[in-house]
Design a protein around this nucleic acid. Sequence first.
DNA 1: TTTTTATATAAGCAAATCATGATATGATGA
DNA 2: TCATCATATCATGATTTGCTTATATAAAAA
Lengths: 115, 115
Amino acid sequence: MPQLAMEIGAAARVLKLLGDPTRLTILAILNQRECCVCELLEVFSTSQPAISQHLRKLKDAGLIQEERRGQWVYYSLRPQSEYYSLLQAVLSYVPDQDENIRKIETANPAARCGC
Amino acid sequence: MPQLAMEIGAAARVLKLLGDPTRLTILAILNQRECCVCELLEVFSTSQPAISQHLRKLKDAGLIQEERRGQWVYYSLRPQSEYYSLLQAVLSYVPDQDENIRKIETANPAARCGC
DNA sequence: TTTTTATATAAGCAAATCATGATATGATGA
DNA sequence: TCATCATATCATGATTTGCTTATATAAAAA
């Protein structure tokens, strides 16, 4: 199956973004379920600004999109991305995030949200 | 097609290696043809130690292998790598390196080699 | 042997990266 | 309107990265 032509520098930039364990895990989670920041925070032992900054990089690259709902901002993969299929190809090699999603749903930090 | 289970931290480490334009290009070239260092040197506008250092990182990760022939050291992809199929999946998204290989063969820096 | 060629390693440096704590913004609810 | 909660941004610092120059090693050639 031939892939779309892609400049090699652009591919490297995307792969560099995927080459961080926090970001790669975020993407793997978002591939299963949209999340707000406070939900992602349940998964990682890092600060909220750190997560926000990772999300910003992924958004700047067009890999994810955000949608505000009340005081929460929900993030999800952006299927329109030029790199979506590369991303999917890579994600097919990382383990499913069921365990982390269970962690999110147990903590349920966005409980007060209507959704 | 389900992929082999792979720790996500290990996947991130490999992707980080792929996330550099020089290394990604080296891998794409080696995917088409084994090369010695002086051949790779024809492709990039960087120093010989820089290339050697990139090759070292790729070798340490088990992605490539070396074989000395006389004074030349030939590098090639290492199909036994646990990450070989991930690598192939990624490389299927980067353009072919025919142009760079033409550059190598025109310059033919290893001409004095018997091979 | 000595020189040359190919490659590797070491040391040092500038830039990039990723985290942190402090603070700003924006929405909600009292 | 004020306090609170969720998120973003800013300033900073430690670490990592990737380059360069200089030098070491290893094989071949003179």
